[in-house]
Write a protein that binds this DNA or RNA. Structure first.
Length: 427
RNA sequence: GCGGGCGUCGCCAAGUGGUUAAGGCAGCGGCUUGUGGCGCCGCUAUUCGGGGGUUCGAAUCCCCUCGCUCGCCCCA
C-alpha cells in the first residue's frame, strides 16, 4: 500500500476505462442535442445554504452527507451533492427564466460523504436534465422519454421504469397527516427503524424491508386515495403519454424520492444487474423549488443519471467495448541524426490527421519493433542514420502485407494516407 | 454511523508454524549492437498493508490499527 493514495470513495479513472465513459458522454451529448437541450455548467462549490434550502434540512443528504467547510472568508461552502439546486440557482441568478422556459442539461462530479459500496462513491458523476418552466404532463413524459431513449441507445438491457406520483404539496401534506396518525395507532407492531421514521420521514416507512411491517402496511392509507382530482388526472395523463410512446413502466406506490423538492411525478429507472444500488436514473417534478430558492413560481421536471452505475452496466455487457486509440503509424528511430529527424516526421504526419506514436526511447531496433507491434499500429516508419543522411524513411507494413518501401520523408504522408484510405472501408 | 468478507511484487496468484516466499502476465536485459509478433535464457518481494504480542522459530496464531470490498441506512 503506497503511503499516498486517493481519499476513500474518490476513484481514479484509468486510461483503460476512459473509453467507455467518453462513449456514454458522447451519446448523452448527442441525445440532448437532438432534443434541443442546452448544456449548462455550474461551479462544484456553492454556498451551503443553497443545498440546505433546496434539498431540505431534514434529508440525509443535507443532514449527514455533505462535504461542508469554511473557506478563508469564514463562509460555509459545500461541494455539490447533486446538480438541480445549482442549475436552478444559476437560472435565477442570470434571469434565464425571464427569457422563457429553459431546457438544460449538465454533467460532472457530485460529492456525498457516505460509505462506498458497489455503484456508490463519494465523488460520483451524474448527467442530468432539467426542464424549467414546463408545467404540462407532456413535459414529464418527454423528460422520461429522453432518459429512456438514451439508455436504450447505449444498449443497456434489463431496465425497468418505476413510476409514482407524490401528488401536489397539499395532497402530500394531507396524506402525511393521515399516515402519521395511522402509524402512531399501530406503533407497537412496527419495527424499531420504522418507529423512528414516523417522526423523521413517515413516507419512508412504506418502503420498509421488514416483512412483518410490510404485512401490517397493507392496511395503511395510501397516497393514491389522498390525491385530489386534479393530481389524479395529471398522473393519468403521464401514464397515457408513456403508453402512447410504448415505454413500459410499473407503478410503484412505495417509490418516494428522498429530496424534499419533489412533487407529482416521481420515477426511477433501475436494473436488476446492479447489486444493492439499482437505480441508474432517478427524477421527478419539482414545481416548488424555483420559488423556494428565490425565483418566480416556476414548474419544472428533471432527472439525474448515475454515470458509475451506467458504466458498470455497460462494462458487464460483453458486446460493449470502447475502441482503443490505435496509432496509424509508429515511428522507430535509432542514432543521433535519425532520432533528431523522428519528431519532425511524426509532427508532419500528425498535422495531416494521422495518429502517430513516436518511440523516443533510443532502444535497440528489436525492442522498438516489439513495442510497435504491441501498439497495434498498421505501419511503422523506420529511420536509422542511413536513412537520415539521405532524407528517407523506410515504410514498413507491420502486418507484412506489403514489402518495405524506402521513400522520401516528404512523400511519406501522401503514401500513408493513400494506403490507409484504401483500407478504411474494409475495417 | 453500524454489520460481513478480504489484504503475499505493477496485475493475477500458490503458500495455514520450521532452512533460500511457487508460478503466470506485464517490465527489463540477452540469444538477434537495423527489424516485431513465436521460442529460449536471465533479472525483478531480505519480505507477506502497518504496529505490537505468543513462540527456539510466523506470511501463516492472538491483539490493535489502516485500507479495500459487499451490505444496512440513504441515494444516482
Amino acid at each position: 500500500m503506497p503511503s499516498l493514495q486517493s481519499l476513500r470513495g474518490m476513484v481514479d479513472l484509468l486510461p483503460d476505462a476512459i473509453g467507455l465513459w467518453q462513449h456514454v458522454e458522447a451519446s448523452a451529448r448527442e441525445h440532448f442535442r437532438r432534443a434541443a437541450v442546452a448544456e449548462i455548467r455550474t461551479p462544484l462549490l456553492e454556498v451551503t445554504e443553497l443545498f440546505a434550502r433546496g434539498i431540505g434540512e431534514a434529508t440525509d443528504v443535507v443532514g449527514k452527507e455533505m462535504y461542508t467547510f469554511l473557506d478563508r472568508g469564514e463562509r460555509s461552502c459545500t461541494l455539490r451533492p447533486e446538480g438541480t439546486a445549482s442549475v436552478v440557482r444559476a437560472a435565477i441568478q442570470h434571469g434565464l427564466l425571464s427569457q422563457g422556459p429553459q431546457r438544460l442539461w449538465y454533467g460532472g462530479p457530485m460529492f456525498r460523504y457516505e460509505r462506498p459500496q458497489a455503484g456508490r462513491q463519494r465523488q460520483f458523476h451524474q448527467i442530468g436534465l432539467e426542464l424549467l418552466g414546463f408545467a404540462d404532463a407532456r413535459s414529464d413524459v418527454e423528460a422520461i422519454a429522453i432518459a429512456w431513449d438514451l439508455l436504450a441507445d447505449l444498449g443497456v438491457g434489463g431496465l425497468a421504469l418505476e413510476l409514482n406520483t407524490l401528488g401536489s404539496p397539499d395532497d402530500r401534506a394531507r396524506y402525511r397527516g393521515e399516515l402519521v396518525a395511522w402509524l402512531e395507532a399501530h406503533r407497537e407492531r412496527l419495527d424499531p427503524d420504522s418507529q423512528q421514521r414516523i417522526a423523521t420521514n413517515p413516507l419512508r416507512v412504506l418502503d420498509s424491508k421488514v416483512p412483518d411491517t410490510q404485512t401490517l402496511l397493507a392496511g395503511a392509507p395510501t397516497l393514491a386515495d389522498a390525491l385530489c382530482g386534479e393530481s389524479h388526472e395529471r398522473f393519468a395523463r403521464v401514464r397515457q403519454g408513456l403508453e402512447a410512446l410504448a415505454i413500459p413502466f410499473e407503478l410503484n406506490p412505495r417509490l418516494v424520492r428522498g429530496l424534499d423538492y419533489y412533487s407529482h411525478t416521481a420515477f426511477e429507472i433501475t436494473s436488476s444487474q446492479l447489486g444493492a444500488q439499482a437505480t441508474v436514473c432517478g427524477g421527478g417534478r419539482y414545481d416548488g423549488l424555483v420559488q423556494q430558492l428565490g425565483g418566480a413560481p416556476t414548474p419544472a421536471i428533471g432527472w439525474a443519471l448515475g454515470m458509475e452505475r451506467l458504466v458498470l452496466l455497460l462494462s458487464q455487457a460483453a458486446h460493449v467495448s470502447a475502441p482503443a486509440a490505435v496509432p496509424d503509424l509508429y515511428v522507430v528511430s535509432r542514432g543521433e541524426a535519425a532520432e533528431a529527424l523522428a519528431l519532425p516526421v511524426a509532427r508532419r504526419c500528425r498535422a495531416s490527421g494521422l495518429v502517430v506514436e513516436l518511440d523516443g526511447s533510443g532502444a535497440a531496433f528489436a525492442k522498438q519493433f516489439r513495442r510497435a507491434d504491441r501498439s497495434g499500429a498498421r505501419f511503422a516508419a523506420v529511420i536509422g542514420d542511413a536513412e537520415a543522411s539521405e532524407g528517407l524513411a523506410v515504410l514498413k507494413d507491420l502486418r507484412g502485407e506489403r514489402p518495405e518501401q524506402r521513400l522520401a520523408i516528404a512523400a511519406l504522408v501522401d503514401v500513408l494516407r493513400q494506403l490507409l484510405a484504401r483500407r478504411e472501408p474494409v475495417a
